[in-house]
């Protein structure tokens, strides 16, 4: 018995039951049958042909006009059938695309991975949590031959694949900078030229670029429109904003980035963050800078990674565990 015959028998049975006593059961059976026929890719016009064959057997004395009308109905349904098949093939393509994007996203994660450097006398911790599947936040560390460490934290405005490509661009530009030009201002000026030329005009990047030199324990930094970080003075327990002026990357190719520096003493800490931290919204409004500083203060005695993790947990709790924006926090603490 062919597949068509099996389906035909089943359909005929349903039709017969219904013609005889109009039960709910028959209606339920026909719904089930419809799901099955979709599963086996039976087109609408085939359904009508099935119907015609069945009804001719079940009620041979039907008027000719009714049977003829089914031919017209069948012709009319042809386009629906075509549309349906097209829909099916688009769904297959869509599934393939989703798979490919997932592969790309995973690959991106691997490519963009950055190692937190280990240098003596400095403890570094970092946490970055995306609000959605793909993050617009990015951070990167580069260790230099002379022992210095470059750190960059960026927020790419614009999401999805362009943002992802943009992150790769930042990473490779940073990795391939010559050893003699990794001062934060240089890094930003160079990246700004790259971004200005290559990126869609409505997309731009805020970035904070820093360089920690353990030789003289000085932190050099520049900002391209990025949320200012904080400086923690271990002796006085005071926090202050690491203010730095500079235009967003990708707006003006002639932009210059001023470099600032800060002598870091034992027990001092540098905190860098994305605007997902300071723009954290609670049900009562925005988080106040004092509240944020309060949390950091509460955990400042811990290791750098612990501080980052604990502060994140507090803010996550404040927002009822629903991040609205990507969250990135980097802590650099001088220990000896």
């Amino acid at each position: 018995m062919s597949f068509r015959d099996t389906m035909l028998d089943e359909y005929k049975e349903i039709l017969k039951t219904y013609i005889n006593d109009q039960t709910e059961q028959a209606l339920y059976m026909s719904q089930k049958f419809s799901r099955k026929s979709i599963e086996y890719k039976i087109s609408p016009e085939e359904m009508i042909s099935l119907h015609k064959t069945s009804i001719m057997e079940l009620a041979p004395d039907l008027p000719e006009s009714l049977l003829l009308s089914l031919d017209i109905l069948l012709e009319v349904m042809m386009s629906y059938g075509l549309a349906y098949r097209e829909h099916q093939s688009l769904r297959t393509i869509q599934r393939e695309l989703i798979n490919e994007i997932e592969v790309a996203a995973n690959m991106q994660q691997t490519l963009l991975g950055t190692q937190i450097p280990h240098i003596s006398s400095v403890d570094i911790g970092a946490i970055s949590v995306p609000a959605k599947q793909m993050s617009g936040d990015y951070y990167h560390f580069v260790s230099h031959e002379n022992g210095a460490v470059s750190v960059a934290i960026a927020d790419i405005i614009g999401k999805g694949i362009p943002a992802a490509l943009c992150m790769s661009m930042i990473k490779y530009s940073m990795d391939s900078m010559p050893e003699n030009s990794h001062t934060p201002g240089d890094v930003l000026e160079r990246l700004n030229r790259v971004v200005e030329q290559n990126v869609d005009p409505t997309m731009f990047i805020t970035m904070f670029s820093g360089l920690y030199n353990p030789g003289n324990h000085t932190f050099y930094y520049s900002s391209a429109g990025h949320e200012p970080g904080f400086y923690y003075n271990g002796e006085t327990g005071a926090f202050e904003e690491l203010k730095a002026k500079g235009l967003l990357l990708g707006v003006d190719k002639k932009a210059k980035y001023r470099e600032y520096e800060r002598k870091v003493e034992v027990g001092d800490a540098i905190l860098l963050m994305s605007d997902g931290v300071t723009e954290c919204r609670t049900k009562d409004g925005f988080i106040e800078i004092d509240t944020l500083v309060g949390y950091i203060e509460k955990y400042i005695h811990l290791g750098a990674q612990d501080i980052a993790d604990k502060v994140y947990k507090e803010l996550e709790f404040l927002q009822d565990f629903q991040l609205r924006d990507d969250f990135t926090l980097i802590i650099i603490k001088r220990t000896a």
Binding site: T206, A224, G225, H226, P228, L247, L248, V251, A255
Partner: peptide
């Protein structure tokens, strides 16, 4: 201000 846009 932060983003430097206020200057341009």
């Amino acid at each position: 201000d932060i983003t430097g846009l206020a200057d341009i």
